[in-house]
């Protein structure tokens, strides 16, 4: 009897917990946009429709570039948008009219440019940097923000909660999606071959560790004072190859990868390069102020004692 009561108690507690959790989720989330009609086809690898001419049901594979991962979409900053907020409302009818493909699409700057609401992101400065970058010079207007920043899934890269490894992985994925020897996306924009990163970086000691710990742009872009992330990607010949630019007290990483955290931790009394001390380790750049002082004092003390001892030996010998 006791066992039954115990089981019933656990069951009721479980139901109560489930109801509480689900009701909290529902109350905190914004109402999702009504994208069901689009995702019926564009959310899957295969889609079906009835051919009105033949009267037969057709089952076809979706073009992979037109598939939307709705889970990733819901995590992105644009998750409150309905598809037709950016795409033409005519897409709501199927089959889609062929001329829809020729309609101009919204770019990032159409919404974010010149808008004081987004001033803190410095979109206009980013646009100027991209125009002057190796991508802008090679491709001109054909190089668009969305080639690196997928507007469907875009998440803010920097938040205090995000670990450096996550930031690095997300950033480097943007580069390696195209700059990847084993995939063919590079050829969508260029007639030349994508370099093999393992070969082009063979000079770099602990290559894999670098790839995992820092972003490509740490070495492949200029330092920007006003932007959190520099968008002025430079030619490979101008990339940083001097180790001490990062591996020194005044590390370049404090103006790049750790820039967003440096401001708060630099002011903390105690450690120099505090941001790095807390989250990661860079040989030559991570230093402990107190250990430095203690070591210099101890070393000087020992050295002075030795000098004094040697002095007494010489004097008293005479």
């Amino acid at each position: 009897m006791k066992t039954r009561l115990f089981s019933l108690g656990i069951l009721l507690s479980g139901i109560l917990l489930f109801v509480t959790l689900t009701s909290q989720d529902q109350s905190e989330e914004a109402p999702p946009p009504d994208n069901y009609e689009c995702l019926k086809c564009h959310g899957k690898n295969y889609y079906s429709f009835e051919n009105e001419v033949t009267g037969m049901k057709v089952h076809k594979k979706m073009n992979p570039y037109f598939i939307l991962n709705h889970q990733k979409y819901n995590q992105g900053v644009h998750n409150s948008f309905a598809c037709i907020d950016c795409h033409l409302p005519e897409y709501e009818t199927y089959p889609h009219a062929a001329e829809l493909k020729l309609e101009p699409q919204y770019g990032c700057m159409d919404c974010h440019g010149d808008d004081p609401n987004y001033a803190k992101f410095h979109f206009d400065e980013i646009s100027i940097e991209v125009e002057g970058s190796v991508h802008g010079n090679a491709l001109g207007d054909d190089f668009k923000c969305e080639m690196c920043h997928n507007p469907h899934y875009y998440e803010l890269g920097y938040s205090k909660d995000k670990r450096i490894e996550e930031i690095v992985a997300t950033a480097n994925n943007m580069c390696t999606e195209c700059h990847n020897y084993s995939q063919d996306k590079f050829y969508l924009l260029s007639d030349s071959c994508a370099g093999n990163q393992d070969i082009t970086h063979s000079w770099l000691p602990s290559k894999e560790l670098h790839f995992k710990s820092v972003r490509c742009i740490e070495c492949h872009s200029t330092i920007s004072d006003s932007l959190i992330v520099s968008h002025n990607i430079v030619e490979k010949e101008s990339a940083v190859k001097n180790c001490v630019e990062c591996h020194s007290t005044d590390s370049r990483l404090m103006s790049t990868l750790y820039k967003h955290r440096a401001k708060e931790s630099r002011s903390k009394f105690g450690f120099i390069n505090g941001a790095m001390m807390n989250e990661s380790f860079v040989v030559g750049a991570t230093k402990n102020y107190y250990l430095n002082v203690i070591s210099i004092v101890l070393f000087s003390f020992v050295f002075l004692i030795i000098l004094f001892h040697a002095f007494l030996r010489i004097i008293l010998k005479k």
């Binding site: 000691p205 180790c243 001490v244 591996h247 020194s248 040989v283 030559g284």
Partner: peptide, 19 residues
Amino acid sequence: SIQYSNPEYPFMRFDLAII
């Protein structure tokens, strides 16, 4: 040399010191 590396006063080239 590695611990106190400094681009302005290179005691020894960093990558050489590491090797």
